[in-house]
Structure formats: C-alpha cells, structure tokens
Design a protein around this nucleic acid. Structure first.
Lengths: 247, 247
DNA sequence: CGCAGAATTGATACATCTCAAGCTGGGTGG
DNA sequence: CCACCCAGCTTGAGATGTATCAATTCTGCG
C-alpha cells in the first residue's frame, strides 16, 4: 500500500528548504550530522502517509508538495488540524504514536530522520532545538488564528479567509507583495477545504459561487482563483482591515 | 488601571510550579540565574493583564490562578484561544507585540522574566529551551484537539468535552485517577465558556440544563458540577470511547 | 432589603446542514 | 471519434441546530 520509492535528491547544501526547515540554523558541520541520518521518502497524491495510532520511528520535513494533518471522529466527521507545506515538520521528538492522520494532497517528498538519532542531535545541537521551537511557536500562532476562524467566523468569512491565506502564502514564496490582479491555485478539493474550515462541501461550493457572482473572485477551471482586488477580498474575511500579520 | 502589587513569594526552590513550568528542567545553578531576573506580579479577577497590540517587555509563568488568551474581532465576536493554568507560559521569546488579550479569570499571580535577559538565557541554558519546546508542543496538541471541538462537535458535545477536560485536569493535579462520583469547579463564567467553545452563552446554559435534566451531571450552585458517572459523560463528548489521551 | 451581575428560559429567525438531483471535464475503451 | 463514465463540483428544497432578542429568575453581597 505505502509507496517507498526512494528518490535521489540534492545534498543538504542545495536543498530547496535549506533555509526554512528545521535545519535552517545549522552550520556546515551540524548539517553533516543531519545528512548522515537522513533519507527521502515519496508518496503520491491522495495517499495516507501516516495513520493516527501508527507507531512513528521517524520525524520528517516536507520537501516538495502539500500534505494535511487531520483528526476523524468515530462517525466520520473529520477536521483538518494542519496544512503541511514545504519546510514544515512532521512528528514530535519523544513521541511514539502518531496522533493524527497525515495525507498527501499532491505528490509529496519528505526528508526523514530516524527518531532516536534525531532526538540525540536535539540535545547536542542547540541550533536544531532552537529552530524547532521557533517553528512550533509559529504553528501555535497559526492554530490560534485558525481557532478564531472555526469558532466565530461565518461561512463566507471562512472561505474569504482561506483564499486570502493561500494568496498571502503564494506571495511570500515569491517574496513579492501581493498587489493588483492576482491568481492563485487552490491546492485542496472542495471537500478538503470543508474539512479545513469546519463546513460541509456544499456550503463551501455555495460560498465560492456567491463570491464569484459578486465579482470578488473569478474562477479559471475549478482550482484556479483570480483575485481582481485583494483589499476587497480582505474585507470579507472579518479580520482587522489595517493589518498585515502581527510579527 | 493595571495593579502592580508586588508579592513576596517563596524562592524558586520551593515554588509551587517548580517542576512543571519553564524552569522544570533547570539545575540549581541555572535556577539561580532565573531567580536573579525574576519578579512577581499580581492581578485581580476580571482584570485584563495584557491587551493585544501592547508592547511586551517580559515573559511569564502563571504561578497561581487562571487566565485566558483571547482574540476579538472588530464587531466584538471573541474566541478564547488559550486557557492558562499554573505553570503555563505567557509570551514568546523574540516577539515585541502581544497578539492576544490576556485576562485574569480569578486572582492571578505570575512570575515574570524581563524579556531580553530571558532570551539570552535561552541561548546559554539549553534546559530552558528544551522545556519551552516541550511545552509549546503540548500546547499545539491541545490547540489541535480544540480545533476538532470548534469545527466539528455539536453544542452538547462541546459542553460535555469541556467538563471532561476540566475533570481530567483536576484529577491530574491530584495525581489520582478520576473514578466514581467526582465533583469539579468550573473556573469560567457561562460567557467565558461560550467564548471557549465557539457558542453563545444562552446555548451553553441550555446544554448544561439539558445534561442536568438527563442526570448526566448535577449542579451545586452555578459553578460546582458533580459527575455521578464519568464514562457516561465521556460518551457525550463524541471522542473515542476507548481512550485516555495519547501520550 | 434590594440591587447588579450572572444565569435560565422562551419564542422566533436564520445560517448551515442534509438529502437529492444534475452538471462538468477529462480519461478510457469500443 | 464518439459514447460513456466517474470523481469532483454545483445547485435546489427542506430540515435542523444554534443564534438572536426578550423576559424572568437566581445569587451573592453591600
């Protein structure tokens, strides 16, 4: 079931996530230590990478692709609790059992470290622990933003927020300020968006249609969204108008 | 507005949160360093300790009492995003501006560290960073559990979950397994519970009444809840029946 | 006692879910 | 090359859970 095709990727020194992942702060010699315990793994779109309850003998960084973290209740209701993009970290030092499902949304390649050696490095190599702390705190902030969305926003605000989040992230990747007419690709199906937002897929579809009808977004196919005017979209998110994210 | 009554508390070595807070892993000599930059601050019930947008020149640990972390939208909708109990950490190294409101629910005493010196200790004293990482990851797990609650649970499940969470935590403090007839005190008003759960206070009140009517809980006054049979309550939470928390 | 904040309860409105029926676009096999 | 199929998506109609608005009723306390 699980596809294990090992992929030969570049060395750490010219890895695409070298400066954002858990290894970002490492010096050359520390990088060598990581290099010696790392290996790549790939999954194809739709595959479940890890099942909640599985024993985990590794931790990993997403190198390429998009994956999701999700929880499922007995009756099938599911809630996404994390959206994993390149450089994001999977797993937790000191934990045996995976608490969430991890699913590949697109084809995904991850850089794995065997857990035990990684835990040792964590003690001996402060730069790794420092970076991991920074990343954990960033995720905690994101989770709290997400809690406001889930608990208090309307369906329309949720959709607008999601599109805005994706647009902002795209811009971040290009290091360009988002302005004028932008075009972003939704990496998620309607159902995955629903799981992200705590809605049903029908409501997601209806709200997207409504935003389109009102000219706030345009669609090119099902997955590509054009935002003629970002500030207008931002007004629909319910967030403070004045502000970029507080850093 | 803010009450600054300094309180003379014990030394670190016999501090009530010595073994759970950010200092838990510290050796005696490391503790001395913390001791030299710490000071206490107290707030009375209902007081706002920190406003979102405030400049933060310290980080802190809750020593006594309960506080909340919350976000408010322009039109007044508010969502609680953190419940801070003794030993929980406030603030983030490397951050200037507070992103959330912090409010004292009961009278609260915190142990503060000036931010700059604390950040230096973080680099020179790995035990602090390690513990902080552990705590951040625990909070992240709690946030993700909370996201499932906000996104997918019904009002009744939310209330049952909240009572169960509080019951479990009380038991943890006493290091006793919860069994038989338990009695717990809700540290929150109905409105605060609503902000925690993403509901209105009327819905909270109705659901509590419903659980009472059905004999799943009993009330002693408004704040004290008696749970005649914990497993029966747990069935109402929507969570997996089999399981304690995955550690 | 009497007041104020907290909580309960009721009646109604409304947003979102649920169930059900089509639509669309891209791939496949005849 | 077309017909078909299927997953993903859209749209509709009606049900339902929670919010909203509005009285009361508690409870603790000066």
């Amino acid at each position: 079931m699980v596809q294990h095709s090992e992929i030969e990727l570049s060395e750490c020194s010219d890895c695409p996530i070298r400066h954002r992942a858990v290894c970002a702060r490492c010096e050359e010699d520390e990088l060598d230590l990581l290099e010696s315990i790392k290996y790549y793994r790939s999954y194809s779109a739709g595959q479940t990478m890890i099942w909640a309850g599985d024993r985990m003998d590794f931790v990993a960084s997403v190198v390429v692709g998009v994956a999701t973290l999700s929880q499922t209740m007995e009756d099938g209701r599911t809630q996404m609790v994390g959206l994993l993009l390149p450089s994001d970290f999977i797993g937790r030092p000191g934990r045996e059992i995976a608490p969430y499902n991890v699913t590949a949304v697109s084809d995904v390649t991850v850089c794995c470290f065997r857990k035990r050696p990684f835990e040792n490095l964590l003690v001996t190599t402060p730069h790794i622990g420092q970076r991991l702390l920074e990343m954990a705190l960033d995720e905690l902030d994101a989770a709290r933003e997400w809690m406001l969305l889930l608990g208090r926003k309307t369906a329309r605000e949720k959709i607008a927020s999601l599109i805005a989040i994706i647009a902002r992230r795209d811009a971040e990747l290009k290091d360009a300020l988002p302005e004028g007419r932008l075009s972003v690709t939704l990496p998620l199906t309607r159902e995955a968006m629903a799981d992200y937002l705590g809605l049903t897929l029908e409501t997601v579809s209806r709200q997207i249609s409504a935003l389109k009808r009102e000219g706030i977004i345009e669609l090119e196919g099902k997955r590509r969204v054009i935002i003629p005017n970002l500030p207008v979209l931002m007004e629909q998110t319910g967030d403070d108008s004045d502000g970029g994210p507080i850093v």
